[in-house]
């Protein structure tokens, strides 16, 4: 079965327009993300992963080329339309407040609710499903500040699920988590991609886990950006020069990164 392409970028150039000149971060980026797949975005600090995510999600305008989300340029969606196509999980902390996990997840229904934000029976069913799919039903009545980092990430993912969008983009969701939590979070994302036919893109620094648990990888390096399934990328020796200097290298025999 041919899977549907959700997000695609052709000859994309990303960067900033500062005063008169434009500062180019990366050019000629070609990316294709399909429904039902989990894709990791990896690269060294400062290489421009955040800029790429901002451009792909329509927060930042591309310098050249275009980003198509469901066959329409991402910048041409109105904010309410975009909210029905794309859900985000951000790294920033939630502001202090009284929100319970249930309320937090229910806010994902905002693009669909009336002017007062009242939940219909259908909305409530979708919220319960999202809580169930992320295994956090038992947390529904906890306040968001009472959660551990791992539980909070799951709650934020449940919120993104409740938003009912074909594409979910997560910015470094595994940061601050311990190893078992990192692994279970990525397994959860993989399960959601498969079972709910979501297109999920996340950025990460947990390279070994990303290699084991992602369907596809986007490697961002100074010279070029490559996308592919992990085994293909390993064959192509795409992990060479991922980091500047010689201190960390990819060991093709064990398929892990190690300190030289």
């Amino acid at each position: 079965m041919e899977r549907k392409t959700i997000l695609s970028a052709q000859l994309l150039g990303i960067g900033y327009k500062a005063k008169k000149e434009s500062i180019i971060i990366a050019e000629n980026i070609d990316i294709q993300l399909k429904a039902g797949s989990l894709t990791a975005l990896i690269g060294a600090n400062g290489i421009g992963k955040s800029s790429l995510l901002r451009t792909l999600t329509g927060i930042q305008a591309p310098l050249s080329g275009s980003v198509l989300l469901n066959n329409q340029p991402v910048n041409q969606y109105t904010p309410p339309q975009l909210a029905q196509q794309l859900a985000l999980v951000l790294t920033e902390a939630l502001p202090p407040g009284n929100l319970t996990v249930y309320d937090l997840v229910a806010l994902g229904r905002q693009p669909y609710t009336n002017w007062l934000g009242s939940l219909s029976a259908e909305d409530k069913a979708i919220v319960s499903n999202a809580l169930q799919a992320t295994d956090i039903e038992y947390l529904a009545h906890k306040k968001h500040y009472e959660l551990s980092d791992g539980q909070l990430q799951k709650a934020l993912i449940a919120r993104a699920l409740a938003q009912d969008t074909p594409l979910i983009v997560l910015d470094e969701p595994t940061t601050h988590l311990d190893l078992p939590n990192k692994a279970s979070l990525l397994q959860l994302l993989k399960k959601l991609a498969l079972e709910q036919d979501k297109c999920i893109l996340y950025s990460t620094h947990d390279l070994d886990l990303a290699l084991q648990l992602s369907d596809e990888i986007i490697i961002m390096k100074k010279e070029a950006i490559a996308q592919g399934i992990p085994t293909q990328l390993i064959e192509k020796k795409a992990f060479d020069n991922l980091f500047e200097g010689e201190s960390v290298v990819f060991d093709y025999s064990t398929k892990t990164f190690r300190v030289k």
Partner: peptide
């Protein structure tokens, strides 16, 4: 009232939920 609820998640989340 509805955008105020969205703002409980912070401005970037509110924006991603379609709030102007």
């Amino acid at each position: 009232i509805k955008p105020l609820d969205a703002l409980l998640l912070g401005e970037r989340y509110a924006k991603s939920l379609g709030v102007n």
